[in-house]
Design a protein around this nucleic acid. Structure first.
Lengths: 141, 141
DNA sequence: CCAATACCTCAAGTAACTTGAGATCCGAGA
DNA sequence: TCTCGGATCTCAAGTTACTTGAGGTATTGG
């Protein structure tokens, strides 16, 4: 049931990743060297799809290549040193939470400024735009 | 009461931005050319702190330099074309919300995998680590 | 069989900075 | 006043994570 002999193009569409990026990831060792057809064309399988999809998802969420490397190693290591593994994931989780909080704060600030624009539209002239001040030093709420 | 004659070092600490980055932002026109002392040293004031703090905050949250440029222009433009301004901010807000949702999903996934590690620790041997599968193709909940 | 794709390698370009070299300037202490 | 350590200057090159392009081979549908 495993799809065998995927071309790089198929892998590309399955993992939502450009062909160039796949080759790049192989070059830097994030993906293992692909096996080749006699022609020299790369060949992939299901496990490559998973590994690559995982890497792309992490990257899209702001993890560095090095962090992805660590997470991949962790995910594929035999289950020894669980505490260490747990700690690593927990650290990533913390950094995710931080970003999340900051983004939420920005969302609030942006919504406030949109509301303020609309209020100005409705109310009349309204002289000054304070979005820069608001965003640079957001009122801590 | 405005602090005048800030050195680049002072600005750097006030806006939490490296000195090199300040000079870089001037070079690419994200900050206006600083006025200079006779010695050639740059001089700044309060408004520069605001502008830079704003830019850094946006960058930290994943906005591109071009987007920051747009936001800055928007913030500093006279209040005409409010609808357009509103739309621009709203678009940014949407992209922020998207990232936020994705990060939240990742946080959930990571927490689940941490829990699963802990359960394995407590319960006994437990053969396989499924974090890679989980993260690559998260169960949509 | 042949043209349109898909694939190959290698080199160079991009974004957003950071780091380093080598020189000048400024301020506090002797 | 002299001095010396730190702050500043410019310019060049390095870094990360890719993307784009040139020039050439392989595969495949009509």
């Amino acid at each position: 049931m495993g799809v065998q002999r995927l071309t790089i193009g198929k892998l590309s569409t399955l993992a939502k990743c450009s062909v160039a990026t796949i080759r790049y990831y192989e070059e830097i060792g994030l993906l293992p060297p692909a096996s080749r057809e006699s022609s020299g064309h790369r060949r992939y399988d299901e496990s490559d799809v998973k590994r690559l999809a995982f890497a792309r998802r992490c990257r899209a969420l702001g993890f560095s290549i090095k962090e992805v490397r660590d997470l991949l190693a962790l995910a594929e290591s035999p289950a020894r040193s669980r505490d260490e593994a747990c700690a690593l994931i927990q650290a990533h989780l913390d950094s995710v939470r931080e970003k999340l909080d900051d983004l939420q704060a920005l969302a609030r600030t942006l919504m406030r400024s949109v509301d303020s624009y609309k209020a100005q539209c409705a109310g009349g002239p309204a002289p000054k735009c304070t979005i820069l001040e608001d965003l640079a030093f957001p009122p801590t709420d």
